[in-house]
Design a protein around this nucleic acid. Sequence first.
DNA 1: GTGCAACTTGACTGCTCGGTCTAGTTTTCG
DNA 2: CGAAAACTAGACCGAGCAGTCAAGTTGCAC
Lengths: 216, 216
Amino acid sequence: MEKRRLTSRGQERKRQLMAFAARRFAENGYHPTSVAEIVSGLGVGKGVFYWYFSSKEELFLEILRDAQHDLRRRQDDAIGEEPDPVRRIELGLRASMAWFAEHRDLVNLFQFAAAEERFAPALRRGQEVAVADATRHVKEAIAEGRIRDGDADATRHVKEAIAEGRIRDGDPELLTHALLGVSTYLAARFIHERGENPDEVAEAAVAFCLHGLLGR
Amino acid sequence: MEKRRLTSRGQERKRQLMAFAARRFAENGYHPTSVAEIVSGLGVGKGVFYWYFSSKEELFLEILRDAQHDLRRRQDDAIGEEPDPVRRIELGLRASMAWFAEHRDLVNLFQFAAAEERFAPALRRGQEVAVADATRHVKEAIAEGRIRDGDADATRHVKEAIAEGRIRDGDPELLTHALLGVSTYLAARFIHERGENPDEVAEAAVAFCLHGLLGR
DNA sequence: GTGCAACTTGACTGCTCGGTCTAGTTTTCG
DNA sequence: CGAAAACTAGACCGAGCAGTCAAGTTGCAC
């Protein structure tokens, strides 16, 4: 992976290629979108593409990296110096939903990457740090006694499960992934698919994640 | 879409093709897996493929339909005649997680189909009935006062949102999709990726969906 | 202005793809 | 049996693919 020196003009070209390709990949799929289509869509020759990227796959990976980096930055900015871990989780959730709303194409690329064995490892590697961070907040909330540790008034069935040790109740990493599942799913269905108000959906997501179906 | 009469031998061949293709699609991706690879993997000629399917795309759609039908049957069987709507939700969730655990390849295909514009509509159409069903249980639970309607002791932030009418708290369909997000995500990460015990993960998923992070 | 690195072009290559088609073989059934 | 229907093989086709390359052009440093 040799580095090239790019002039500012070159950097602009690269950004153009990545932005256009991301849109086409999302609309049309990664495989069905050819390099020829990407370059002709920008009105440039094929040589341009292979000047900036060594392969179509590398282009995709670079788009992925950039997107993950941008999302993470947004989350960090939103959380800031907030001392309350539960509130940090909420802020991160809202920031993610807002980012999802603004970057429909990139969310679609995440989804594709997760499904394709070839790209899944790269996706996971990029998410690891963010997940670890969120998990830290969850752990802290548990330590402060803000998150149930399994002794609360659960349904009979859940109580039995805890009693029998069949459940690692309050496993921080599992909870983090549950948050991820709720936010990505709700963003896809309600914000992207139906065009609903991102703030409203975020509100509902936060409420569900904090209180579940049964509320209190 | 003409129908063909198939002998029992023909039906067996068709099943073979679908099963093998599903595995290859999941392992290798839909586009990168060629028809030639599928037939040679089964040691048959290309004519066999196009005798049973009019195109590669139709094969995929048929696999999708079958999988959705099978999952739905599993959910219905699990729910049975259970009168308690909350318990019905729980049973459906558990049944889904068990099915996900057993059909990793098909779950991957769902994920791919969701990401590809070309297949997403078919996926959605198949899910509609199941979602409508689950939503019915949620509605019933709300009607029985089992599910929060927003007056409960939410966090300050959520309370404000409700007061300002910014949140359709307890929207049944949104809650259904939140359940879907949690179950598919946790299955992918913990059961498929890390090989954890499906029952344990299901237990944790149920607990999260019913009580959220804060439990109480 | 000279020279070199950054950038651009688009024809071209070798290959693989989804799908067709013809010439069969096997099964079913009257 | 005989004929029709179900099934199979695999050579073949035109299209389109990712990636290469030789021949430029542009812009900046000196």
